[in-house]
């Protein structure tokens, strides 16, 4: 049992982080806190992918001079594909955060607050 838990501890950590983020996104009332939850959520997934790519005893995915001409043993280098996917996912995460922050600025300009329940009250009063 202990062996089993240890052999996959990366995955447990990622699940824990992800749940933390998900709770922040659903449970928190402040818009910026929701956004922070979203970031934790995305970073957790990045951690998961990077964990897929790792190999025990392997080195970074840059070929050494003697391996250049097709003789490279894949066991000696980390799996590059998850790293590549996560480069894309990081950029996507940043872009989403940027757009969300832009929307938050719009919300703040309109209601002068970032707490969800206060915004709801203001909207109820103005009848929208």
């Amino acid at each position: 049992m202990f062996e089993y838990i240890v052999s996959k501890y990366n995955y447990w950590v990622y699940i824990f982080l992800m749940m933390l983020g998900l709770y922040g996104m659903i449970g928190k009332k402040n818009l910026v806190k929701k956004l922070i939850g979203m970031n934790i959520f995305q970073v957790a997934i990045i951690l998961f992918y990077i964990s897929i790519g790792s190999k025990v005893g392997a080195s970074i995915p840059i070929l050494t001079a003697e391996d250049l001409h097709g003789s490279a043993n894949p066991l000696h280098y980390m799996n590059p594909l998850p790293h590549v996917l996560m480069l894309t996912a990081i950029v996507v995460g940043i872009a989403t955060t940027g757009v969300a922050l832009g929307i938050i600025i719009m919300v703040y300009n309109r209601y002068k607050t970032l707490a969800e329940d206060e915004i709801l009250e203001i909207r109820k009063k103005s009848g929208v």
């Binding site: 929307i103 909207r123 929208v128």
Partner: peptide, 11 residues
Amino acid sequence: GAPMAAFNYVI
């Protein structure tokens, strides 16, 4: 109400 709707949509 659009910015708030958009924010919920983002999340």
